[in-house]
Design a protein around this nucleic acid. Structure first.
Length: 338
DNA sequence: TCCACTCC
DNA sequence: GGAGTGGAC
């Protein structure tokens, strides 16, 4: 997913408290996908209510956003709009991969291969329309704003950082840097535990910040060249060049100064090159949004999660009390919130 | 208070 | 992922 240029980028580990009072534009798709793939029962089944609706994302949103907001972070969710036609191949591939994984999940389950089953269960995660709608409902009840991107959520989130309406884009992907976000935060979690892929081992992770300008300076390239490197490696809009990874792409772009010359040199081609480059440089975004953090509507949260989705009332109310306290009287950050 | 482990 | 629990210290 996204572009694999991570190893070129300098990241700075920070404490969550360092993000206090910052507005963070959360890449909704990325975050929801993360919740769906990770918040699961031991056999790999996602959390579900009694009617069979998936609820993993709701649990993730409720608890993580509550914790982040307790730290003084102001999240805004940015949802994907209509994807570019250039993304069609990637979307088809994701669908196919998901379908394969779903079949393999069943197979592994019937063979009693628990670990394998879990892995395929994760890979079968899908951010459905219903999951997006439910997430929006919960966000509204929690008083967290959200924005609909005309196209990519990541580009809209990057745009909001460029405009100064947000301080960071939160995403595990690197694409928002390609879209020109000057600050991106990864691993925006509380516990700081992350399961290693495949293995049943957990490692400590801290939020890490990437600064676009600093990275460009370090790599001695400009924004356009960073995009060209990504194009060489492969993005959601194009297949990467054969036998070219991020290190080699960087070297080639610096050496030849432009991707056209790189393509000549390696004797390969990238379809729709200019169009994709333009998509990163001039993405479709909107200024038509207002960011307003409101007091949580505890009744609505309880109604939605407990009556609607069988959450434990006791636990939900506890989370609501934490939320109310954030915006409540005696809170120093009160004026920062409204 | 710190974990491992379970439940959601 | 994050909350809750219970045993170990």
């Amino acid at each position: 997913m996204g572009t694999d240029i991570g190893e070129l980028l300098k990241k700075q580990q920070v404490e969550i408290s360092e993000l206090s009072h910052k507005v963070v534009a959360v890449d909704a798709y990325n975050t929801l996908y993360q919740f769906l793939s990770i918040i699961r029962q031991r056999d790999g089944t996602p959390l579900k209510d009694s009617r069979g609706n998936i609820t993993s994302h709701l649990s993730g949103i409720l608890y993580r956003m509550t914790s982040l907001m307790e730290e003084g972070i102001k999240p805004v969710f940015v949802f994907d709009g209509k994807p570019s036609h250039l993304k069609a191949r990637t979307i088809e591939k994701r669908t196919a991969d998901r379908e394969k994984a779903t079949i393999k999940w069943e197979e592994a389950k019937s063979k009693g291969l628990a670990e394998e089953a879990y892995m395929y269960a994760q890979a079968s995660s899908r951010v459905t329309h219903e999951i997006v709608e439910d997430s929006r409902k919960l966000l509204v009840a929690m008083g967290i704003p959200w924005v609909d991107a005309p196209s990519e959520g990541e580009s809209q989130a990057a745009h909001m950082v460029k405009r100064g309406d947000a301080n960071y884009v939160a995403s595990q992907d690197y694409d928002s840097l390609l879209f020109g976000a000057s600050f991106v935060v990864r691993n925006l979690t509380i516990t700081g535990k992350r399961k290693l892929p495949k293995k049943n081992i957990f490692v400590d992770v801290k939020p890490e910040i990437m600064e676009l300008g600093e990275n460009l300076a370090e790599l001695e390239i400009d924004q356009s060249q960073l995009i060209e490197i990504a194009l060489c490696v492969g993005t959601d809009y194009n297949r990467g060049l054969e036998k070219i990874g991020p290190k080699k792409a960087l070297k080639l772009i610096k050496e030849h100064r432009s991707i056209e010359k790189v393509l000549q040199a390696v004797g390969q081609n990238i379809e729709d090159l200019q169009e994709i480059k333009d998509l990163f440089l001039n993405p479709s975004v909107t200024d038509n949004y207002t960011l307003k953090w409101k007091k949580p509507d505890t009744d609505a949260i309880v109604e939605f999660l407990c009556q609607g989705h069988d959450f434990s009332k006791e636990r939900v109310i506890k989370a609501c009390e934490r939320l109310e306290k954030i915006s409540g009287p005696g809170q120093r950050t009160l004026d920062q919130w409204f």
